[in-house]
């Protein structure tokens, strides 16, 4: 199984996401923003960071990267995609997920170990959890405040599209304590906290983050997707 991790100029947690994929038992494949090919990967992670310096608006430039055109097309065909932090912002800018992420309500960057409740364990990335399970995953962002219209928020609730919520103090002011959402099909998930930083007790507060990466390995069937090119060995 191959999990692709995209590197945009300014991506920072790409190495961590690749490591987490390896810890989960996958082969991590580095994807380059300027290369539209996905090199036969079975799932894609858009990692955290400050793609293109977050100029203009977080994720606003990254959505136009050549690799994103392919990812957007394949995601609509069912390719599992996980956007973490800046990746979540990119997915919203690319309209693969609804809503938007704005400046934290308190206007500070905040990094802390955050308690999060998994609300939906049926997505490609959360199958190894159970609904209602609480996990601890680091949150670290300056613009992680999820906003949407009341209609959108009600719709997300009704469709089970809220994947995770903050428990305890809301670290950024997100509406309805939203930490993660999914698309209607459930293959695309955006999450503000960083599961890739919670895969080893030596370097993280828990190993709870590993579940996102092991989940997707079970959700994908190798060779199910038809790729547009021959996969290099």
């Amino acid at each position: 199984m191959k999990i692709g991790v995209v590197t945009f100029p300014g991506s920072l947690d790409d190495g961590d996401a690749a490591r987490a994929a390896r810890y989960a038992g996958a082969e991590a494949v580095r994807l380059w923003h300027a290369d539209p090919e996905l090199h036969g990967v079975d799932a894609v992670v858009l990692p955290g960071g400050f793609s293109y310096g977050d100029y203009l608006r977080c994720g606003a430039i990254a959505r136009f990267a050549p690799v994103m055109e392919t990812i957007a097309r394949e995601a609509r065909d069912g390719l599992p995609v996980l956007g973490i932090c800046n990746g979540f912002q990119i997915l919203c800018e690319a309209h693969l997920l609804p809503g938007a992420l704005t400046r934290n309500q308190h206007l500070h960057f905040r990094n802390r170990d955050q308690r999060v409740r998994i609300e939906n364990a049926t997505t490609a990335w959360t199958g190894d959890f159970s609904a209602g399970q609480e996990v601890v995953i680091p949150v670290k962002n300056g613009e992680g405040c999820f906003v949407g219209s009341t209609e959108l928020l009600d719709e997300l609730e009704a469709n089970g599209q809220i994947v995770a919520r903050y428990v305890g103090e809301n670290p950024n002011g997100s509406m309805r304590d939203i930490a993660a959402i999914r698309n209607e099909a459930g293959n695309v998930v955006g999450i503000m906290p960083h599961p890739e930083h919670a895969v080893d007790l030596l370097t993280g507060p828990s190993v709870d983050g590993l579940g996102f990466f092991t989940s997707v390995l079970k959700a994908i069937t190798p060779g199910r997707r038809t790729t547009t090119e021959e996969v290099p060995a």
Partner: peptide, 17 residues
């Protein structure tokens, strides 16, 4: 000093013990 240090990323690169 959390008010200060929470404004810094301590996790990136995955090698902070």
């Amino acid at each position: 000093k959390s008010w200060v240090t929470e404004q810094y990323d301590r996790y990136v690169l995955g090698n902070t013990v």
